[in-house]
Amino acid sequence: MTEKFNILITIKFCLTFLLLSSITSQVANAKELIIGFTYDIPPYIADNATSGLEIDIVRDALKYKGHTFKPQQFSYGELDYVVKQKGLDGAAAVQKTDDGTFYSENFIAFRNYAFTKKNAGITINSVADLKGKTIVAWQDAYKDLGPEFEALFSPSVELPYKNKYKEIPDQAKQVAMFWNSEAEVIVIDETIMLWFTKHLANKSGSIQDLVYHNIFGDKTQFRVSFKDQQVRDDFNEGLKYIRENGTYQQIFDKYLKD
Rank of each mutant, 00 (worst) to 15 (best):
M1S: 08
I9Q: 05
T10D: 06
F13E: 05
C14D: 08
L15A: 14
T16G: 06
S21R: 02
A30L: 03
I34P: 05
Y39Q: 01
D40F: 13
I41D: 00
P42S: 14
I45E: 00
T50R: 00
T50D: 13
D56T: 02
D60I: 12
K63Q: 10
H67C: 07
H67S: 08
T68H: 04
G77A: 06
E78L: 02
Y81F: 10
V82T: 07
V83E: 04
A93Q: 02
K96I: 10
T101H: 02
S104W: 01
F107P: 12
A109C: 06
R111K: 15
T116Y: 12
G121I: 11
K131S: 05
W138Q: 10
A141I: 09
L145H: 07
F153N: 03
S156A: 14
E158S: 09
L159H: 03
K164G: 15
Y165E: 07
E167Q: 05
A172F: 15
A172L: 10
A176F: 11
M177D: 11
W179K: 10
E182Y: 14
E182D: 12
E182C: 10
E184Q: 15
V185I: 12
I188P: 06
D189I: 03
I192W: 06
W195R: 05
H213V: 10
N214A: 07
N214Y: 09
I215A: 05
K219R: 07
T220V: 15
F222S: 04
V224W: 03
Q230D: 12
R232M: 01
F235G: 01
G238V: 12
L239K: 02
K240I: 14
I242S: 13
I242P: 06
G246S: 10
T247P: 13
Y248W: 06
D253F: 09
